[in-house]
């Protein structure tokens, strides 16, 4: 206990040196909490990106409105309606959007508000997935893993659920299974990566030159190193698009089923998922952030975060009764650590 208090003071810096830290309430963040903090950081980034000048212009509402195209009327009409509201009141609406995202990020990071913020993030993510991304283009045939399908924002909601700090955690070999249980978490993983594999085989990705055009199109406005990378990758994919789409689909399918494999296979699957996420992020042009006007980092970092949440831990996280183990470097001593 004394060493734990000393450790807390040391970590707290000068406030700890003068007794300003509640040692009894501080617990080092465990794996799940660290993943929540990364998610919080991405939300904060999204919020600040929303403050860019482009977001306050008509261009932003036009971009949102364009996502209605090709969707059924029941999906498209609300998109058009919301885009019109944003076009009529660009300053107020965008400022509200930005503040909401910043608040979600800071709320997840601030422990007393993490549940409220995670819950709000699910609601917000679902609303944006519909009204801002047109359900990721899933229903209009434009969806491709290389352009962020099935919609980066839906992954925020998925992460919020999987990383939820429940009162009674379930025993699970990875952080993402502590709230929903390992089986449900694996099924969600299968659905997500399996859907990406399916989308990789659709014409939006597999048609000749489709993949190359998608990637090369991201080079515009990027810094030299990224533009060169996307140009070269786009040129390669233009010549080998259909074959590479099939390869991508196979890789995504392997990742999808890897969660059900024994520990070595699951770890290999996570590493493959991380590599795939990195490839997709580069192909997405880092979400267009460096070109100006990017609203979020796109799906790459979120897929990587999701993969890390499924990294097999050294031992089962918690017993099924939810009893907490004594505090260690990775285990929480109280719910505050998660």
């Amino acid at each position: 206990m004394a060493s734990q208090a000393a450790d807390a003071r040391a970590r707290a810096g000068w406030p700890g040196g003068i007794g300003a830290v509640r040692e009894e309430s501080w617990t080092a963040p465990d794996v799940r909490r660290r993943l929540q903090l990364v998610l919080a950081g991405i939300w904060l980034l999204d919020g600040v990106l929303q403050f860019q000048a482009f977001m306050f212009s008509k261009g932003f509402s036009q971009m949102l409105g364009a996502t209605a195209a090709g969707n059924p009327a029941v999906v498209a009409d609300p998109i058009s309606w919301s885009a019109k509201i944003i076009a009529d009141h660009p300053t107020a609406t965008d400022a509200i959007f930005a503040l909401i995202q910043v608040a979600i990020g800071l709320g997840i990071a601030w422990r007393p508000a993490r549940k409220l913020a995670l819950g709000a993030s699910v609601v917000w993510a679902l609303a944006v997935w519909w009204l801002g991304e047109g359900l990721g283009g899933v229903l209009n045939g434009a969806a491709s893993p290389v352009n962020g399908a099935p919609g980066a924002v839906i992954i925020y909601a998925l992460l919020a659920v999987l990383l939820w700090p429940g009162r009674q955690d379930r025993a699970a070999p990875f952080a993402a299974g502590r709230f929903t249980g390992a089986t449900v978490a694996r099924l969600l993983w299968l659905v997500l990566w399996g859907s990406l594999a399916y989308l990789a085989l659709l014409p939006a990705t597999r048609a000749p030159k489709a993949l190359g055009a998608l990637v090369a199109g991201m080079a515009s406005g990027q810094p030299g190193w990224l533009a060169g990378l996307d140009d070269h990758l786009g040129a390669f994919l233009t010549g080998n698009g259909p074959a590479m789409a099939v390869v991508l689909a196979i890789v995504l399918a392997v990742v999808a089923v890897s969660a059900f494999l024994p520990r070595p296979g699951a770890r290999a699957g996570v590493m493959l998922a991380l590599a795939t996420a990195a490839f997709l992020w580069l192909a997405e042009g880092l979400g267009g952030m460096l070109a100006g006007g990017g609203t979020d980092p796109n799906s790459g970092p979120l897929l990587a975060l999701l993969a890390l949440a499924f990294w097999p831990l050294a031992s089962a996280a918690l017993p099924a009764t939810g009893q907490q183990k004594p505090a260690t470097a990775t285990q929480p001593a109280s719910p505050e650590g998660t």
């Binding site: 807390a8 707290a12 406030p15 007794g19 300003a20 830290v21 509640r22 309430s25 501080w26 963040p29 909490r33 903090l37 919080a40 950081g41 904060l44 990020g105 800071l106 990071a109 601030w110 422990r111 007393p112 505050e336």
Partner: peptide, 13 residues
Amino acid sequence: YVIWTADRLSSLA
């Protein structure tokens, strides 16, 4: 660092 600081906020008396 902002997120890290926010995480520690509740530990400050």
